[in-house]
Design a protein around this nucleic acid. Structure first.
Lengths: 121, 121, 121, 121
DNA sequence: GTGGTCTAGACCACT
DNA sequence: GTGGTCTAGACCACG
């Protein structure tokens, strides 16, 4: 996953999305310790304050928790992660359907087109 | 349809997309006369040259044709329009699948989620 | 043959060329009487003076001759017409070779390409 | 090669043709870096935007590609260049045959005339 | 410095 | 009035 930002949305928002992705896909597994804010910020080439803000957001959602002394960890609550995964999926689905409707596709047609599209490796 | 531009992509590109949408959805039916370059430009609040560029692009694709004195017209070639509609649809599908894959959804799962999503009016 | 002028060269020059063409191709056969200057001018939608100048040029070349009372006639000298035909042909050939040379084609290659080109009806 | 424009066709079209010629003849070899838009424009004594338009056209055809910061380059695809050379050649041939036909020459005769014409240095 | 985009405003041909 | 072209000049992102 690359750390490229779009300028369209605030950077911290994009950081939240990328980190959610890593959690949801298991790249950051439940219970895993995250790198330090400073290291994550350096890796993403953003200001530490920006990264801090993104992590606070994740903490707010209950996706990560911090222990004063030992750092930040991904939640062990698998259900929460699964729920996030579904929520994000549904958002994508909703946007997809909206865009297809703009093109004049009803859901059935969109689904049909989906079936005939080859899946990449 | 609103004329709001994102700054992400060049304006003329976004103009092309909006106009394609209008053609594909039949808002501009085959054979219909478009407003003049100047009028369309005024409507979209862009420079006439920018609108001209977008229209030239559409002309290149064979979606519209221009007659010296009487204006620009949507192609009467329904197959071409249908092909564009499918192409645009496939692009959406491809991007959707890619995004879902990022979330760890394979196509079958994505399709399943699609089926359970209520379709808006 | 249409009477469309290019603006590139003087109109009377273009008239000369068109009339030469008609003579060379036999559309105006040897000895044939030409329409009056006024009629020809009307047909070509040019000023009679312009047509007059073109005809004078043709007369200078000996391709047409005028009889005071009865009008203008195409020369009966078949050799002269044949010579013109060849001269015009050679001019085309020369220009063709020059253009092909610009593209990096030597004569043999140009001739080869010529052979493989289908002749239209 | 001189930068003289005919007024018959748009300047940017003529620019495209001249540049194609330079590519096809190898004056701009495959992979070669073109001068900057501004320099080429100055050389041809046209507005940079006009030259830009011509270059964009060439880019559309895949004859050149641009790299954000370092400039424009001739394609390395020799086959593409060869194809263009042949296409341009065929166009000349077709026009030549059409003109000869106007003079009453069939292809065989035109070819014969071609053979007897001295090739210039 | 490079390419790329956009605006503003003018002029042309065509009818 | 229509589309089309051209110029002039500005601004941007990328390195």
């Amino acid at each position: 996953m690359s750390w490229i930002f779009s300028g369209e949305k605030p950077i911290y928002t994009q950081l939240v999305e990328r980190l959610q992705l890593r959690i949801v896909t298991g790249e950051y597994p439940p219970g895993a310790r995250l790198s330090s804010v400073r290291d994550l910020a350096a890796e993403a080439a953003v200001n530490p304050n920006t990264m801090q803000r993104a992590l606070a957001e994740l903490e707010n959602m209950g996706l990560v928790y911090s222990q004063r002394t030992s750092g930040r960890f991904v939640t062990e609550d698998g259900a929460k992660i699964a729920a996030l995964r579904e929520q994000l999926g549904r958002e994508k689905v909703r946007r997809f359907l909206a865009e297809m409707r703009e093109l004049g596709y009803r859901r059935a047609e969109a689904a049909a087109l989906l079936e005939t599209e080859e899946e990449e490796a």
